[in-house]
Design a binder for these strands. Structure first.
Lengths: 239, 239
DNA sequence: CGATAGTTTGAACAAACTCAAGACACGTGG
DNA sequence: CCACGTGTCTTGAGTTTGTTCAAACTATCG
């Protein structure tokens, strides 16, 4: 696999876009090279360390962000502090709710993250004159809705063991945008975040991970690194 | 309130559209009266009794349906039969996932339901030539995503008592499309469906409803009819 | 080397579930 | 009209699952 894919008009593209995943599966695939050039004048690539807040709930959105690498955690909190992770975003997802003046979730870098930031007015102008772009974003939104509904089944109807297995399977199948499933990866979330994603406590998550390890379904190294020798065996544990 | 709203061009509109809520808040609001006339040639109004299946999971979608009255229940089931309700649709929501050849949920009439059925090709053709229509549907999809994420907080982090209160509040605030909040209504779902929506058993739902009644937060008549003397008291129980 | 943050493990506890029985509304047929 | 059956709902008692609280373990970093 070469670092820069060779397209017909690669040489006309902004340097930063040439090897960007978003041009292939992400929203930039809806743009002509002229539009991409115009857009690239407004964008900037930024890096955030794990734990940094990207968007705050009920705060105005200034920029959209295309996820280039890493994992972004979307969450909501109740007044008394209980927290629920309501989604994870991987490359090449678009961060920030289109057309909303305010965010309805808190977004935080779960791992180290690379984003391509697009000022809100720039992207919205482009959307208005380019229905194909809105169409792409629509497809992403529909996919996010499907994923949210799948996760509701996990939250509402699965046991703790099934929830943890489902989480590990979710990560294995999303962590690398270029691969379907991966058998060895670093968890982008702490035990506390996993608990907030699954509606469980830290202790229950830890116990279920220990059980999967004891049963030989997964191997764990250094708390965060997971190997799955047989993905099918993990999948049957998802309920 | 008059039965037929008086708009400028009411007389040009198809008879069935004249008093239709969807023209005001729903997707038909994006259409000109010419487009509405053209579309109305393909649509038909249908009635379904409570309990009838409208879409099956993993089955092809033939028609979209605009909800005119009543409540539609969207659900998913695990292989072993565990069920989770993943959404409710009220007037004037659009039923059926745009652009998908297959449904990803089972849709069922929760109460008696009136739908305005639109053949899939007819709506998709209209969407292609009318970006404003896709935009309307996009806004509805974004709203559904917000609602799904709000509900994930309820499923993952609330107690049984808070879940039941949240459900009653959801119904009170959605059952009538013309009103913000309503203080007296019929539950569109059985205890079993409420349990499947909240990730609880029938018995737990029943006990929590009894407790709300004993505490004077709600009154119940004939199992299904609910009165909420003070909506604020219900809201504080939502967590 | 000690401090710290994240994680694991154990024991007691509580919330929600399961199983079981009974109440209530409604429809049907005697 | 009443007896009966059915489906839905409520209530109770005992059990299970996951939580809470507490302590110990491990890696990392100054």
């Amino acid at each position: 696999m070469q670092p820069v894919r060779n397209d017909i008009h690669n040489s006309d593209l902004p340097v930063l876009c040439q090897s960007c995943e978003s041009r292939h599966q992400g929203i930039c695939g809806a743009l002509t090279s002229e539009q991409l050039l115009a857009l690239a004048r407004h964008t900037r690539r930024v890096h955030h360390a794990a734990g940094q807040e990207l968007l705050a709930d009920a705060e105005p959105i200034i920029s959209y962000g295309n996820v280039l690498s890493g994992v972004v955690k979307l969450s909501k909190v109740l007044e008394d502090g209980r927290q629920q992770v309501v989604g994870l975003q991987f490359a090449p997802d678009l961060l920030g709710r289109l057309f909303a003046s305010e965010s309805r979730v808190t977004a935080e870098a779960a791992s180290d993250v690379e984003l391509c930031m697009v000022p809100k007015p720039a992207l919205e102008a482009l959307v208005r004159e380019n229905p194909a772009l809105e169409h792409r974003i629509m497809l992403q939104t529909l996919r996010e809705l499907d994923e949210a509904r799948d996760w509701m089944v996990t939250l509402g109807r699965k046991t703790a063991a099934e929830k943890v297995a489902s989480f590990l399977y979710l990560i294995a199948s999303h962590i690398d945008p270029t691969q379907e499933e991966v058998t060895s990866f670093d968890l982008p979330l702490s035990r506390a975040d996993i608990g907030d994603f699954l509606g469980l406590t830290i202790e229950t998550v830890s116990r279920q991970i220990s059980k999967l390890k004891a049963d030989g379904v997964i191997e764990i190294e250094n708390y965060r690194h997971v190997s799955v020798p047989d993905v099918a065996r993990l999948r049957v544990r998802c309920g």
